[in-house]
Amino acid sequence: MDDQDLVERCLKKNRAAQSLLYERYSSKMLGICYRYTKSMADAEDILQEGFIKVFRNLEQFKGSGELGAWIRRIMVNTAINFLKQKERYQVDLSFVDKGLHPVTTEENPEIRLNTRELAELIRQLPVGYQTIFNLHAVEGYSHVEIGRILGINEGTSRSQYSRARSLLISWIQKNELENNTGIYVRK
């Protein structure tokens, strides 16, 4: 059953179709939500809220694009709103320079980490860095778009991203050094 049929059935409140749509996309979408948060419980909250929006606004899905991409946009927007509203994320989202200075790193390091390890490193970034890194590096948003989404100017997004990137690369390199030599390097 293709996505268009599935959407039509969902619009008729067919529960089996709703369940199938959820099963088809929930795992991947939880991966996305997970990258934006610090805990799996928060990620599931976003997933839940996101899917409620998906089902309630399904008639707005035009069918011209991919259903997965449409759901993904909803999840990312829901995650951003969640971060803005959730108390524990608000301080970090104020984009105050916390003295995390960029370190000199190789520009394009070889990433030998597996998906889960890399995701964990991204999640260790301060929330502001984490959010901008996800939006730019993974979702592909431009800094102008990120500025509009987060209510900051383009330059702030660009500088924050640069710091996040440097920090992440240094962690990746340290991780790989640890993996290769067995020597633990403090982050």
């Binding site: 929930s26 795992s27 991947k28 939880l30 991966g31 996305i32 997970y34 990258r35 799996m40 990620a43 599931e44 997933l47 990433i111 980490l113 998906t115 889960r116 890399l118 995701a119 991204i122 590096a137 993974v138 592909g140």
Partner: peptide, 12 residues
Amino acid sequence: VQQNMEGLEFIP
């Protein structure tokens, strides 16, 4: 990074 993150999935 993007290619790597595409494979990140969890069962809710």
